[in-house]
Amino acid sequence: MHLEEFAEGDSFFHKLDPRIKFLTITPSVCIIAIMKSIETSLIALLLCFVSVAFAKISFKKLFLRLLSVNLFILLLWIFLPFSFTGEAIFDVGPYSATKEGIYKASLITLKSNAIVIITITFLGTSQIFSLAHALIDLKVPKKLVLLFFFFYRYIAVIHDEYIRMKKALLIRNFKPSSNLHTYKTLAYSIGMLIIKSFDRSQRIYNAMLCRGFKNNFPIMSHFQIRSSDITFGIIILLIVSLLIVFDYG
């Protein structure tokens, strides 16, 4: 299972300190999410595209990702233009699309895409494990980070178990369709997956105890903050403040 699609690379964003990434992306996405004007949202989206150039990620992969995210947005476009009262632009049967409705749908589309792109360029360009490490430095509750760490670590392992079970079903000529037999078979497979995971977790914990686990994960390598990280942080925070001023101005 190859999950970290954008994490490999040698760009500016790939080298950026993950702690700075969290500290800059959090205000950025919050501001974009609450923007009211279409002009500022458009500027934000353009700036996010600029970050794509800096992150040197494949446009094709990015495009595919945006395509799947925009399926939900498409659903909004079917309903929203016709739900608002206001100045009618055109009619479809008894329904008329209003200027306000189209404005709202465009706003959501711009904001949504901007946040998705910035999430990929900022956080997608780091390994999940270094992000988890950064979260510890940023004082996120340790239990939560450990939970996240183990959760991510074992997805691939459990997925392999699932693939093995799926093959076993295939060998026995299991063909899923809408009937009780299918649902029962899938339910038992999920049950088996849960039992295997539970047993595995007990073995993991015992192994941890054998190695002297005392509610702590010693971290061997630490992040070194560079002056370019700090400059980047200041620039992003400046842009964010400017966007706030524009949006409310």
């Binding site: 239990k143 450990l146 939970l147 996240f148 760490f149 183990f150 959760f151 991510y152 670590r153 074992y154 997805i155 392992v157 459990i158 997925h159 178990e161 699932y162 899923p176 299918t182 649902y183 899938l186 999920i190 997956l193 849960i194 295997k196 995971s197 539970f198 595995r200 977790s201 007990q202 993991i204 914990y205 941890m208």
Partner: peptide
Amino acid sequence: IPEVAVLSSAFFVASLIHV
């Protein structure tokens, strides 16, 4: 933590199953 985490992984994988 290991128990809750690995069970969460199992639910994550199970949510990939298309029914």
